[in-house]
Simulated scan of single mutants.
Amino acid sequence: MSTLELHVDVGVPVDRAWESLHQVENYPSFVEGVRGARTEAGGRAHLEVEAGGRAREVEAEVTDSGEHVMEWLTTGSPGMTGSFSVQPVDENHTRIQARLQYDPEAVRNTFGGPKGFAQTNAIERLVRGDLEHFKEYVERG
């Protein structure tokens, strides 16, 4: 299992950042490869994802754990878990900490892509890009 932790500071108050992360329907606006997303009953999220030329539907259980921590777990393949921690830097700035645990081979089998270290680098670039896109999205309002 590989673990990736990255963060980005955004120029909005913590409550606005927190609310934006919970609007799953808007994920296609800032998460690379997500073509559609919706919230479902029971704390579930349904994502239509295209990666490596392959389209897949991904289901995840989403829970709030503690103050301003959102955790998620995919319910099928590829098995991944993660969390977003949202912490105030000051009154108008917030740090978004993303944590992702995944099996590189399972991700490769599901979506294709390079093997080994190259894949780990590709996933890190993807998550880093998604955080930057979230920053742009939330700061635009």
Rank of each mutant, 00 (worst) to 15 (best):
G79L: 10
G129V: 12
E105Q: 03
P114Y: 09
Q87S: 14
F111M: 07
G141P: 04
L73D: 06
P28N: 07
L47C: 09
S83Y: 11
R35F: 11
R38D: 01
M1P: 12
G52V: 12
W72A: 15
S83F: 03
E50V: 15
T39Q: 03
G66C: 02
K135E: 00
E48S: 07
A60P: 07
D103K: 07
H68A: 05
G76R: 07
V62Y: 01
E91I: 15
E61Y: 05
D103Q: 05
F117G: 08
I123Q: 09
L131A: 06
V89W: 03
L47N: 10
T120D: 12
A118G: 08
V8P: 01
E67R: 04
E25I: 02
S2Q: 12
G129I: 15
T63A: 13
R108Q: 10
V31A: 07
H7A: 10
H133L: 08
A45G: 04
T3E: 14
A60M: 04
V127P: 11
E105K: 07
L126P: 09
R128L: 09
V62F: 03
A45C: 09
S65R: 15
S77V: 11
S65C: 09
V8C: 12
L4T: 13
A41C: 03
Y102T: 01
G42A: 03
E136D: 09
E48F: 09
S2W: 04
V34C: 04
K115W: 10
V49N: 06
W18C: 00
D15M: 09
D64C: 07
N121C: 14
M1Y: 12
H68P: 07
T120K: 13
L6R: 13
R35E: 15
A45Q: 05
R140A: 05
G112C: 04
T75P: 14
E32Y: 06
A51I: 15
E91L: 14
S77Y: 12
V86W: 03
P78S: 00
V34L: 14
P104R: 03
T74C: 10
V58M: 12
E105Y: 09
A98V: 09
R99P: 06
T120F: 14
G112K: 01
M1N: 08
Y27V: 01
R35S: 15
H7I: 01
R128D: 14
R16M: 10
P104F: 03
V49C: 11
E139N: 02
L4Y: 14
P88L: 13
Q97D: 06
S29A: 09
V127S: 13
S20R: 01
T39E: 04
K135C: 00
K135T: 00
A60C: 06
E19H: 02
W72Q: 10
A45Y: 00
R56Y: 10
Q97I: 05
Q101P: 11
V138M: 00
Y27F: 06
V89T: 13
D103L: 02
L21Y: 00
L100G: 06
Q119V: 04
E71R: 13
G33R: 08
E67V: 00
K135Y: 00
A122T: 15
G116V: 03
V69Q: 05
R38Y: 05
E32D: 14
V127Y: 12
